[in-house]
Design a binder for these strands. Structure first.
Ligand SMILES: [Mn+2]
Ligand SMILES: [Mn+2]
Ligand SMILES: [Mn+2]
Ligand SMILES: [Mn+2]
Lengths: 149, 149
DNA sequence: CTCGGAATGTAGCCTAGGCTACATTCTGTC
DNA sequence: GACAGAATGTAGCCTAGGCTACATTCCGAG
């Protein structure tokens, strides 16, 4: 190749700061993902069974109970949950509020995937990861699409 | 509440093994995300400029150069890239092949987001995280939707 | 040809999030 | 009421992926 760059599309690569900011946002979103899944799950367990025990949380998530307990400790440090030894886990106001938002977003993401033709199990499975990367802007667009469909 | 559970929807919670498997898939997908972004970016840099230097990679990703170099080491260990000291980074067959798949998927995800009404910058930004959680099944559904639209 | 600045590489530190192994506490059954 | 088994908690290990600080190498201007 000599001095072409003629018929190749110009904007193949985004500019550096733009791209760096996109990657940075993805990293930030990912760092909150685990806490989001925990509060959503704890809220579900509290609603459906009245209690959220570390063992149940661990089994639902598919991790060792020690892993769950350690993460519950982080939920407490971040003010999302409270738990006294051997007494189960409960959510703070902040935790409940986060859980509500996370649950609503999860449902919208699944519904959108179904609406564009994704099979049910793939929709539920992929949504578990996708949901954490859906911004408010995108969520609003999804809701609008579902409403106007 | 006494012994109701009457007018509440039955299938609010998925069964344990099902849910655990969904969370597990999300964890697995996440663990490959960084490598995917690296090979896609390296491929872009090689195509557009002929070389992929650690400094450029780091600047594009918004991380310190030492972080990029460490991850490049992991790419080498996993057989996705080759690099001799001070000589830039290149992709193996496996790396190129992964990059091609990742780039194609990235584009489909962005196109689908745009198609359902997500604004451009949100689409590009969210896609950077979402793409890593889109299974082959879901990707196929996206492509079909875009084709039939 | 030299030498200074940029790029590259190395070392070491930190946190998150997995795990196993072991210690402790609780609780339902007899 | 004792006690075995389940649940809970603790300790310690590992890897990934960030970072800063410092050491080394390269290369282009003069
Ligand atoms: Mn999730
Ligand atoms: Mn979810
Ligand atoms: Mn990405
Ligand atoms: Mn991408």
């Amino acid at each position: 190749m000599s001095d072409l760059t003629a018929e190749t599309p110009i904007h193949l690569l985004p500019e550096e700061p733009t791209q760096a900011s996109r990657f940075g946002k993805a990293r930030t979103a990912q760092s909150g993902a685990l806490l989001e899944d925990y509060v959503e799950l704890i809220s579900d367990l509290l609603t459906s069974g009245g209690e959220a025990r570390p063992t149940d949380i661990a089994r639902r998530l598919g991790v060792a109970h020690a892993t769950a307990i350690k993460t519950i400790g982080r939920l407490k440090r971040e003010g999302l949950a409270v738990a006294k030894p051997y007494r189960g886990v409960f959510l703070t106001e902040a935790g409940e509020s986060l859980a509500a938002r996370v649950r609503a977003r999860h449902r919208v993401v699944v519904d959108l995937l179904l609406a564009v033709g994704v099979p049910f199990e793939a929709a539920e499975s992929d949504a578990e990861g996708i949901e954490h990367h859906v911004s408010d802007t995108t969520l609003a667009a999804f809701a609008r699409y579902l409403a106007e469909r």
